[in-house]
Computed example of a mutant assay.
Amino acid sequence: MSRPRCERCKRAQDHCLCPLIPRLDSRTRVVLLQHPSETAHALNTARLAALGLVNAQLWVGEVFAQLPELLATPGYRPVLLFPGDEAQALTAYASPDEQPLLLIVPDGTWRKARKLLYLNPLLAALPRVTLAQVTASRYRLRKAPAEGALATIEAVVQALNALEQPQCFDALLRPFDALIEGQIRAMGRDTFERNHGC
């Protein structure tokens, strides 16, 4: 018999993260496009990001038929948070009148994120943005595949912190930090130090 799950955060009821998830407002609209294989991932940080931001949505799939309507959303300038030679570093909005971004964030392994772009040519055609400075990942349980690699929620927080300063979105990381600490406790501190310690 499976353990009862929270309908909102999808964690087991006895590990529900909802009390740690904030409700933060942002000028930037964030849409997270999650590859279906990520929904069962133990962390599922894209879900946590969408739950913690008032102006965010999480879409799960490989092909997104509703993209044309999304990209035509009045009042927003659509961009893709994804590295590339042409990617522009995110900087703070110059004024309160500047058109806010519709920040589209693929969620999946690099291979799966590239597949989302391949299957959705409208995504691949968007202007790309990236983080000017990347702070180290808090995801201490796995070795990053590349320098500067972040969990999806970390990338969203760093992007919003860059765009909307002085507003700070670090509170969005509270449930993520709790998940990491919970996994470390479950494996035992000695095992963590042996396998992941510096």
Rank of each mutant, 00 (worst) to 15 (best):
residue 100 P to Y: 02
residue 52 G to M: 06
residue 114 R to G: 06
residue 119 L to P: 02
residue 69 E to G: 14
residue 7 E to S: 13
residue 38 E to C: 09
residue 101 L to D: 06
residue 25 D to N: 13
residue 120 N to Q: 06
residue 26 S to D: 05
residue 114 R to E: 04
residue 155 A to Q: 03
residue 130 T to H: 11
residue 165 Q to P: 00
residue 11 R to C: 07
residue 17 L to Y: 05
residue 20 L to D: 10
residue 93 Y to E: 08
residue 6 C to H: 07
residue 49 A to F: 01
residue 89 A to E: 12
residue 125 A to I: 02
residue 28 T to H: 09
residue 13 Q to E: 13
residue 153 I to H: 04
residue 182 G to C: 01
residue 173 L to P: 05
residue 37 S to C: 07
residue 98 E to L: 07
residue 60 V to G: 12
residue 189 R to H: 10
residue 122 L to G: 03
residue 162 A to Q: 02
residue 193 E to I: 12
residue 53 L to V: 08
residue 31 V to M: 03
residue 198 C to G: 15
residue 146 A to P: 00
residue 124 A to I: 00
residue 134 V to T: 15
residue 144 A to G: 15
residue 91 T to G: 13
residue 51 L to Y: 06
residue 81 L to Q: 07
residue 46 A to I: 03
residue 188 G to S: 10
residue 65 A to N: 09
residue 144 A to C: 01
residue 100 P to Q: 04
residue 136 A to S: 15
residue 58 L to H: 11
residue 12 A to H: 08
residue 11 R to D: 05
residue 24 L to N: 08
residue 102 L to I: 06
residue 167 Q to A: 15
residue 165 Q to V: 11
residue 170 D to S: 15
residue 197 G to W: 08
residue 179 L to M: 15
residue 123 L to E: 06
residue 77 R to Y: 05
residue 64 F to E: 03
residue 86 E to K: 14
residue 178 A to F: 01
residue 37 S to G: 06
residue 107 D to W: 03
residue 177 D to F: 04
